[in-house]
Amino acid sequence: MASYTLTLSDGTGLKLRPLTRADLFRIESIEAQAHTHPWSVDSYEDCLGGRQQCWVARVGNDVVGCTVFTQSADESELLNLVVAPRWQGKGIGRSLLNFVVTQVAPRAEVLFLEVRVSNQKAITLYSASGFIEVGRRKDYYPAYEGREDALVMMRRLAG
């Protein structure tokens, strides 16, 4: 099983490896803490059986986040990126995003993503990482009251 070790800015080792079904309980908990409308275990299971790449991030024995992305032809899409709230602000989200870019860049010209218009932390991260807004999907996400728009963002890759 492939795995990678990254070093966060404070020197902490971040280990990345493919997500397994054994990780789903912990990821479900992180999703519930981090998002108002989290991905379900079923969504992750569908990804595990599909063409998506699913990676889990660990610090020591703690599962601290994960990412899901896909690629077809010369385009790729970041489907999900989540970091446990108590681990946010330590560079894990940026490290996961950079990892996705390094994985897809050799074969893709662009990386797309959708993000809730209310998720300012994520929009700031994506913008700082070279993503630009290229569209908006009206009423894309469920919200507590009605629906919420998604920003469509894109980053050009070296390809």
Results as ranks from 00 to 15, higher is better:
residue 131 F to T: 04
residue 88 Q to G: 10
residue 15 K to I: 09
residue 69 F to S: 06
residue 123 I to N: 00
residue 43 S to I: 09
residue 26 R to N: 14
residue 149 D to H: 07
residue 116 R to L: 05
residue 8 L to N: 13
residue 112 F to G: 04
residue 51 R to V: 06
residue 8 L to Q: 07
residue 135 G to R: 13
residue 31 E to K: 01
residue 5 T to L: 01
residue 54 C to E: 00
residue 24 L to W: 08
residue 11 G to K: 09
residue 24 L to Y: 09
residue 148 E to Q: 09
residue 121 K to E: 04
residue 143 A to V: 02
residue 75 E to D: 15
residue 113 L to N: 12
residue 80 N to Q: 13
residue 18 P to F: 02
residue 56 V to C: 08
residue 42 D to G: 04
residue 76 S to G: 14
residue 89 G to R: 08
residue 150 A to D: 08
residue 142 P to W: 05
residue 66 C to F: 12
residue 65 G to N: 08
residue 67 T to Y: 03
residue 21 R to L: 00
residue 98 N to C: 05
residue 44 Y to F: 14
residue 20 T to F: 02
residue 68 V to W: 02
residue 158 A to S: 11
residue 49 G to T: 09
residue 125 L to W: 14
residue 95 S to T: 04
residue 29 S to C: 08
residue 39 W to V: 01
residue 147 R to N: 02
residue 49 G to H: 10
residue 111 L to V: 12
residue 136 R to N: 10
residue 35 H to G: 00
residue 33 Q to F: 13
residue 102 T to K: 09
residue 11 G to Y: 05
residue 48 L to R: 01
residue 114 E to D: 10
residue 53 Q to K: 03
residue 70 T to I: 07
residue 118 S to A: 08
residue 73 A to V: 12
residue 47 C to W: 05
residue 136 R to Q: 05
residue 26 R to S: 15
residue 79 L to A: 04
residue 109 E to P: 01
residue 40 S to L: 06
residue 84 A to W: 10
residue 33 Q to N: 14
residue 94 R to K: 13
residue 155 R to D: 13
residue 150 A to F: 07
residue 52 Q to M: 06
residue 137 R to C: 03
residue 110 V to T: 15
residue 53 Q to A: 10
residue 39 W to Q: 04
residue 114 E to G: 01
residue 91 G to I: 09
residue 63 V to G: 03
residue 134 V to N: 06
residue 143 A to R: 08
residue 112 F to Q: 04
residue 17 R to S: 14
residue 58 R to A: 09
residue 118 S to I: 05
residue 133 E to L: 06
residue 100 V to D: 11
residue 124 T to Q: 11
residue 150 A to N: 03
residue 77 E to D: 15
residue 101 V to T: 13
residue 98 N to Y: 03
residue 124 T to R: 11
residue 89 G to Y: 09
residue 122 A to K: 01
residue 13 G to F: 13
residue 151 L to A: 08
residue 145 E to L: 04
residue 20 T to M: 02
residue 121 K to S: 10
residue 75 E to C: 10
residue 138 K to E: 10
residue 129 S to G: 09
residue 49 G to P: 03
residue 85 P to N: 07
residue 26 R to A: 15
residue 14 L to D: 10
residue 7 T to P: 00
residue 39 W to C: 00
residue 144 Y to T: 03
residue 25 F to A: 15
residue 121 K to R: 15
residue 112 F to T: 07
residue 87 W to Y: 15
residue 123 I to Q: 14
residue 23 D to I: 06
residue 159 G to Y: 11
residue 57 A to L: 02
residue 32 A to K: 14
residue 55 W to L: 06
residue 86 R to L: 09
residue 50 G to H: 03
residue 139 D to P: 00
residue 26 R to K: 15
residue 116 R to Q: 02
residue 32 A to H: 11
residue 110 V to H: 11
residue 20 T to D: 01
residue 48 L to M: 02
residue 102 T to D: 12
residue 56 V to M: 03
residue 78 L to E: 15
residue 60 G to V: 00
residue 60 G to C: 01
residue 38 P to Y: 01
residue 60 G to D: 00
residue 101 V to P: 02
